[in-house]
Simulated assay, not measured.
Amino acid sequence: MGAVLITGQAYAQSSATIKVASYFAEEHPQNVAIREKFKPYVESHSDMKVKIYPNSSLGDERQYTNGVRTGSIEMAISGMGLQTADPRIGFPEWPFLFENYDQAQSMLNGPVGEKIDPAFRKLGVEPLAWTANGFRVFSSNRRIASMEDFQGFKLRMPNLKLYVRVGQALGANVQTMGMSEVYPALEQGVVDGQDNPLATLYRSGWYEVQSNVLESRHMFSPNVYLMNKRFYDNLSEQDQKVIQEASHQAMEMEWQLMRDSAEDIKQKLKAAGLEVTEPGQQFHDQMVSAMQPIYDDFEQQYDWANEWLEMVRNQTES
C-alpha cells in the first residue's frame, strides 16, 4: 500500500486516484498504451486507481499541464508546451532534428531526456517516460509540392514561438489556435491546413475536411508522461517503482504502436480520398535550408545548443 508523508507521519494512500489527462483521441496510441499497460499495471500492483481523460476533457494542453504543476491533476501526457518556461524543453522539436523513430526513442529515453528532465522537475513535475507523438506532416486543402505553394497558405500551428517560426520560415501565413478549434477552422476555411503527425490527423478526424498531405516530416513531436512532483515524491518507494514500471511498459507499447500504425494510417488516408505527396530531394533540401536562420539564432542564444546538437549528430553518425 502506498503512503503519503504529512508532517512526519505516514498516511495510507489506498484511495489515491491518478487522473491522466491528454488532448489525444481515445483510440490514439497514446491513450491505448495508458489504458492497456499503465492502468492495469498500477491497479494490479498497488492500491492506486487510474482514470483516463482523453480528448482535452480536462482542458487544453496548457490548462491540464498547469493542472499537473499545481497538483489538481496527478498526471498528463504532455507535449513540449513547457518550453515557454524553459527553452531546453523544446529542443526535441527543433526542425529536422531526428531522422527516424529508433533514433528519437534512443535519444529521448537516453542522453537528450537526461539533459531535459531536470528542467521539468524545476517546474514541479516528474518526467516518467518519453513517448512519441510522431513526425509532423502538413495536411491541406490543396497540394503542396514546392516552396512556392506555401506562399499565402493559411497554416494553423500550436501557439509556441518555435512552431510559428518554422511555419513562417517556409513562407506560410501562420495562425495559432488550440487543438479543439482545428476541425471547425479547417472545415470553414479559416485556415487552409495544419501540421501534426499522421496519427493525430487521422484519429482527430481532420482528414475529413482536408484533401492533401505533404509528408514533410519537418519536426518530431515527442510527448512525456508528467506527474505532479509533490504527489510522486510523497508516494512510497514501492509505489514509485510501480509508477516507473507502468510508465516504461506503456512507453514501449506506444512507440511500437506509432511505428506500426504509420503506413496503415497513410493507406487509410489515401482510401479516404486524400492525396499523399512525398517531397522530392530538392524540395526537402529547400525546407531544411529554410530552417538555418532558426538554428543560427538558437546557437547564438543558448550556450548549451552546440553541445546538444553535437550529441545528436554523433549518435546519427555512429
Results as ranks from 00 to 15, higher is better:
A3R: 12
L5P: 00
T7C: 12
A12G: 12
A12N: 10
Q13E: 13
Q13F: 04
T17M: 10
T17K: 12
K19W: 05
K19A: 15
A21K: 05
A21Q: 07
Y23D: 15
E27P: 00
H28K: 00
N31P: 07
V32W: 08
V32E: 15
I34Q: 08
E36Q: 14
I52Q: 05
S56D: 11
D60A: 00
R62V: 09
Y64L: 09
Y64T: 12
N66H: 12
V68I: 06
R69F: 02
R69I: 13
T70I: 02
T70D: 11
M75V: 05
M75E: 03
A76W: 02
I77A: 14
S78D: 14
G81I: 13
Q83P: 00
A85H: 04
R88G: 05
P92H: 06
E93K: 02
W94Q: 12
F96D: 01
Y101Q: 11
M107S: 10
P111R: 13
K115C: 00
I116H: 09
A119H: 09
F120S: 03
V125Y: 03
V125E: 05
P127H: 02
L128W: 04
W130E: 05
T131E: 14
A132N: 11
F138Y: 15
S139E: 15
I144K: 07
A145M: 08
S146I: 05
M147E: 12
F153M: 05
L155K: 01
M157C: 10
L162F: 01
V164I: 15
R165E: 15
G167V: 01
V174M: 02
Q175E: 13
Q175G: 09
M177H: 02
M177N: 05
E181S: 13
P184E: 06
P184A: 03
Q188P: 00
G189C: 06
G189H: 06
G193Q: 05
D195Y: 10
L201D: 09
L201N: 06
L201R: 00
Y202H: 08
R203Y: 14
S204C: 00
W206F: 07
E208Y: 04
S211T: 15
E215V: 09
S216F: 08
S216D: 08
S221P: 00
P222S: 02
P222T: 03
N223K: 01
N223F: 03
M227W: 07
F231M: 09
F231R: 08
Y232S: 06
D233Q: 11
N234T: 08
Q238V: 15
D239Q: 08
K241G: 14
V242C: 06
V242H: 04
I243E: 07
A246K: 01
Q249V: 06
A250H: 07
M251E: 14
M258H: 11
M258W: 01
D260K: 07
D264G: 07
G273C: 13
G273D: 14
L274D: 14
E275G: 13
E278D: 10
G280A: 03
Q281N: 04
H284N: 09
D285Q: 15
A290K: 04
A290H: 01
P293R: 01
D296R: 02
D296F: 01
F298L: 12
Y302R: 09
N306P: 04
M311Q: 13
R313S: 09
Q315I: 03
S318L: 14
